[in-house]
Amino acid sequence: MSVSAVAFRHWISEVAPGASTADVCRLSGVKRSTLAQQLVRGKVAESTVVAVARAYGRNPVLGLAEFEPYRELAASVAPPTDAEILSQTPTARLLAELLARVGGGLGHAAAAGEEGSAVRQWVEAIDDGELRQRVSAAAGIAPQNYSAQLSANRLAPELAVRTAREAGVGLRNGLVVTGLVTAAEAGWPPSAVEDALVRLSDAELAFLASERLATLARALKRQEHEDRAVQRAWDHLA
């Protein structure tokens, strides 16, 4: 999705009065050709708004709230649920916590790496069984198109916000899981992950970790299958 180029130009005049397009691009890191194309098309990407807001010291969530269809973001300050927080917690971090509890001694350092966005895990965490159908109907898209985005572990920002709205959770959380804004920019507490993990019982932690490992195993299995198929094709051509 995107925001109106006309509205973007007006917003820029308030955020950076007197700044030229070249100035905005140089400070934000957005390519001049990219911004020029977006302005000509009349639609500016949310990622551009976020980059410019950050460059000029603005909160990117509130920056997006200046545009349709993101007006509600300004008032949506509901904290994330434990289920949402844990859906974004890397599997390595869960395993580190599990091993620490059973005396494995791995500690928290083993979870330093990030796994990237976990859109599908977030939707599964907040799904009451009918969420996908409600979002598809509200957004006016085919359920299979929505499922296709989830299968690719991604959601367009507007669709992520709509998903949060239909689930009854904080709208900003949808932007966090897509990777468009950071958890801190969306107002998540700094200790959110630690607090959510503390509230998990040993059994709940073990079950969640086992689910993640099972998902990872399936993904690795598919990748191995695809790699073998590619290798067979190359062998056949050799």
Score class of each variant (00 low, 15 high):
F67T: 04
E68C: 02
Y70F: 14
Y70L: 04
Y70Q: 04
R71N: 02
E72I: 02
A75Q: 05
A75E: 06
S76G: 03
V77F: 00
P79Q: 00
P80C: 05
T81E: 03
D82W: 02
D82S: 09
A83K: 09
L86S: 03
L86A: 04
S87V: 04
S87H: 09
S87L: 07
Q88L: 14
T89P: 07
T91M: 13
T91Y: 07
A92H: 08
R93C: 07
L94Q: 05
L94A: 08
A96R: 10
A96K: 06
E97F: 06
L98A: 14
L99T: 12
R101L: 12
G104T: 02
G105M: 04
G105L: 05
L106Q: 03
L106V: 10
G107C: 04
G107T: 03
H108W: 10
H108F: 13
H108G: 11
A109F: 13
A109H: 10
A110K: 14
A112G: 15
A112T: 14
G113N: 15
G116A: 04
A118Q: 13
A118S: 06
V119E: 06
V119M: 06
V119D: 11
R120P: 01
Q121A: 10
Q121E: 09
W122V: 02
V123H: 08
E124W: 08
D127V: 07
D128S: 01
G129C: 05
G129M: 08
G129H: 05
E130M: 10
E130F: 14
E130P: 00
E130R: 15
R132P: 13
R132A: 13
Q133R: 15
Q133F: 12
Q133N: 12
Q133T: 13
R134G: 06
R134Q: 05
R134I: 08
R134S: 05
V135D: 10
V135Y: 05
V135W: 08
